[in-house]
Design a protein around this nucleic acid. Sequence first.
DNA 1: CCCGAACGAGACACTGATGTCTCATCCGAT
DNA 2: ATCGGATGAGACATCAGTGTCTCGTTCGGG
Lengths: 182, 182
Amino acid sequence: MTVDRDQVLRTAAALLTRKATATMDEVARASGIGRATLHRHFAGRDALVRALEELGIREFEAALDAARTDEGSASDAVRRLIAEIEPAAGLLAFLVTENQLFEGEMNEGWDRLDSRVSAVFQRGQRQGEFRIDLSPAWLTDAFYGLVSSGFWAVHDGRVATKDFQYMIAELLLGGARRSVEQ
Amino acid sequence: MTVDRDQVLRTAAALLTRKATATMDEVARASGIGRATLHRHFAGRDALVRALEELGIREFEAALDAARTDEGSASDAVRRLIAEIEPAAGLLAFLVTENQLFEGEMNEGWDRLDSRVSAVFQRGQRQGEFRIDLSPAWLTDAFYGLVSSGFWAVHDGRVATKDFQYMIAELLLGGARRSVEQ
DNA sequence: CCCGAACGAGACACTGATGTCTCATCCGAT
DNA sequence: ATCGGATGAGACATCAGTGTCTCGTTCGGG
């Protein structure tokens, strides 16, 4: 009988990713619970979004762990990261835009994640694998942007699901890697 | 005494780009006009957003014209396009997220713009300048995503304004161009 | 200079979403 | 079987935003 809080969060994430303006009532109905119950678990809309943020951070952190970004070449690390992040791409896209709009008060967990992503690009630069004229901060932003774009491209049918990882990885790595022009 | 409708639109664009949930009252005050006057020019919030959309389409189209995307190498065409789009990057970022959220009912003008951007990438592929395993549709989406990411990166101080064009162009073209790995 | 159109300020009703509350019901543990 | 905690449904007040209106003022063209 007890509501599965995490399941509610995942349903809310799926809904809010597609429709950021969904009401609490819509979120509740999508999760198959009453609005009152939703309020019992999340004090309000802000609390829900904050919980969503924590879920996103948890999943992103898990993806970083699973991708073992310290091992092998930086390119392969980026490829593994893209693969691991794919299931959470929608949530990430939602949170990225959410964070862009509300200046200031953002969860500190993002800093840690930014650092870990940035570290991969730094490592690639240090080891001579990536070009050094594109800053790790920019490559990190670009990574978020491309994952979001990739999610929407797949969501709207402009890119096949099976191509998600390849398209992002090739574009990002093609731009980041040192290479000799043809 | 008469309100400069286009100036109001530009102010609204600047505000809504930073805070998408700004109220009509905030938009009016930002433009230095009364809320009633704002309503006299734009029937409602929807009308305002639609007018903003048309402004964005006009500016984007003007950027495409100014970039002369048919001339020279496709790479240079992309570079010129990025340079021309820079002043409207914020508005574009706003409209891109706006369009992603509201499925369906989107201004048909976007199709024409998408086609023109996509055509540049197609030309690059046809002329052997760009790799063919990344679809023009994806490169177009990635272009929007990178311009948006670039805008926010500059806006939040993670990338210097002067690097905006270079960072986007190098990443996008590095990923799109055919090249021999080091 | 004067008249009219456009404006700003504010009042007003209306709507949609929110947050809180009650109460009947249901399910699980004991 | 029973008891208690959790739930769903719905009522309710509240609030923010919207759209409309009026009225006094201001500016600019004739």
